[in-house]
Nucleic acid binder design. Structure first.
Lengths: 252, 252
DNA sequence: AAAATAAGTGTAAAAAGTACATTTAATATC
DNA sequence: GATATTAAATGTACTTTTTACACTTATTTT
C-alpha cells in the first residue's frame, strides 16, 4: 500500500513537468457524512453525535470524517459506521455529494453523504459514551450543524422513495419481527395508515416472509407470530421493479 | 465575489491558530463530469469529447472540468454543459460521486458525475469543432478514459429506473413529437417492444399530451399527429409516485 | 366469569393491465 | 386513375390487482 502510494507521488512529479495543468487547480477537503437510521419497533430514529471541534463544538451533528488518502468513500463510510456502532455489513448507500462553497465556514469542504439502515437492537451501546452519540426520534431531533439538516431531509425522502419500490425496510428490523411491527414501520415512513388486511396480504404475496412458530407477546395479549426474512429471495428480488413497465419480464 | 473569497481565506488563517485539526487533512482535486444523453428520434446517443490533456490525450472522454473555488457542483455542471452545447436550463441531475483513489492515474481526483437530458435538435453544432465533441449511439460508443464507462453504465441504469416511474423521457424530445416517436424512445430505453395500442392508451391516460392539428409526414405516408407536452401538468405530476403505495393520496 | 386488547382472516366490487386484428389516410406504383 | 404499400389509429373481452370493509380468535386482566 505504501509502495503504491509512493509510486503515485512519483507519477505526479513526472507528469507535472510535461503537464502543468493539474498543478494550477485548487484542492479541497473531502469528507464523508453518514445519516444513520434505526427503528425501535415504534418510530424511526437518527443517530447523532456531539461535534468535538470548533466551531460549533458540542452541537449535534451527523457522524462524519475527512476522507483518507488511500480510502474510497464506501470504505470511509464503513469506517465511520463501524467506529460509531461496532457494526459491519450494514446497509449503506451513497445519498448525494454536497458541495456548496460555504457549507463549512472554516474552509470549503466537499461532503459525500451516505445513509445507513441498521437494526437498532444490534447497536452496541458501550460505544456511545466515547463519541457522545445518541439516538433521536426523527420527529424530535435537535438542530444540526452546517447543512446536516438538509442532508437528513434528503435521506428521509430517499428512504421513502426506495421503500415504495423495494423491500428495503427489512434492513431496519431485527432478525425476527411481526407483521404488525412491519406495518408500523411502513406507516411511520409514509406517515399514513394502511388497512391491516390489505397490508398483510400484500406483504405475504412477496413471499419474502417465513413464518416462525413462536409469538411476540410483548405487544398484545394474543401475541403476534414472528417472521423471518427469506434472505435468498430478498437478495434475488431486491432490484426487481414493482410496476409501471407493462411487462417487466421483457426487460433484460 | 472576490471580497467574499478573501474573507474566507482570512478565516482559514484565523482558525488555523486555534484549531489545527483541519490543517492536517489532505486536500483533493474535485471535478464534475457530465453524461449527456440525446435522442435523435431513433436511438439514444451520448455526447463525448476528445481529451485535450495528457495522459490519454485524444482519447474519448465524458465532458468534465475541475470545480472552481467559488462554484458548487450544479453551477459547475451547468457551466460545462453550456460550454459544450450552448444550452441553458437543461435537465440535470446528480448521479454519483466517484472517489476511487486510483481513478485518475495522475493524482487522486474526486469526480461528481451528473447526467443531462437534452433535446438533440437544439444542440448547436458549431460548438462542436472547438471542443472535438461528437454524438455516439449509446450502443456503439468508443472506449472511454478512466472510469467513465462505469459512469455511463450507471447513468443508463438511472435513466431507465427514473423513466419507469416518472415522465422524464420528455426531456429528450423536441417540443413537438408523435406518439410513435415516444414509443420508440421508451422501447430504446427499455430494450423491449410494447404493444402500440396499450402504449398509446397508457400514455394518453397520463393526460400529459396535448394533441396538435398538424402531422409529422417524415416517417409515414399517413402521417402521425404531433403532440406537445402539457408543461403545467408535467411540472405538477413529475414527482407523483406511480404505484405500490396502496392509496397514494394518503401520503403527505 | 367477563371484559379488554390486539391479531388474524375473506369476499365482493372496481380498476388496471394484457392480449389481440382491423380500418384508415396518404403516397407510390403500375 | 386504379391498385398496392405503408405506418397510424382505434376497441373489446379477459385476467389480475387493488380496494373497501367487519367479524372471530387467543390471551391476559379484572
Amino acid at each position: 500500500m505504501i509502495k503504491k502510494h509512493q509510486i503515485s507521488i512519483l507519477e505526479v512529479k513526472l507528469f507535472s513537468i510535461a503537464m502543468p495543468k493539474y498543478q494550477k487547480q485548487t484542492r479541497f477537503l473531502v469528507a464523508v457524512d453518514c445519516i444513520i437510521f434505526g427503528f425501535d419497533g415504534t418510530e424511526l430514529k437518527l443517530l447523532l453525535v456531539q461535534r468535538e471541534l470548533e466551531p460549533e463544538k458540542g452541537k449535534w451533528s451527523l457522524i462524519g470524517s475527512f476522507i483518507r488518502e488511500e480510502e474510497d468513500f464506501e470504505k470511509g463510510a464503513n469506517r465511520i459506521l463501524n467506529q460509531m456502532t461496532g457494526l459491519e455489513g450494514v446497509y449503506l448507500e451513497q445519498l448525494h455529494a454536497f458541495g456548496n462553497p460555504d457549507r463549512d465556514p472554516i474552509e470549503r469542504t466537499i461532503s459525500v453523504a451516505y445513509f445507513a439502515l441498521i437494526d437498532i437492537h444490534q447497536y452496541e451501546r458501550q460505544l456511545n459514551d466515547e463519541y457522545h452519540a445518541e439516538w433521536f426520534p426523527i420527529k424530535s431531533a435537535p438542530r444540526l450543524i452546517f447543512d446536516h439538516e438538509q442532508m437528513v431531509e434528503m435521506a428521509k425522502k430517499r428512504l421513502r422513495y426506495k421503500a415504495a419500490f423495494h423491500p428495503i425496510l427489512f434492513e431496519l428490523l431485527p432478525e425476527k419481527f411481526t407483521v404488525p411491527q412491519l406495518q408500523n414501520l411502513y406507516e411511520g415512513i409514509f406517515d399514513t395508515v394502511f388497512d391491516k388486511r390489505n397490508f398483510s396480504r400484500k406483504i405475504q404475496s412477496t413471499k419474502l416472509l417465513i413464518k416462525q412458530k413462536d409469538k411476540d407477546k410483548e405487544n398484545s395479549k394474543k401475541g403476534a407470530y414472528y417472521y423471518k426474512l427469506d434472505k435468498r429471495r430478498y437478495a434475488a428480488n431486491f432490484h426487481a421493479f414493482l410496476n409501471f413497465i407493462p411487462n417487466p419480464d421483457n426487460i433484460k
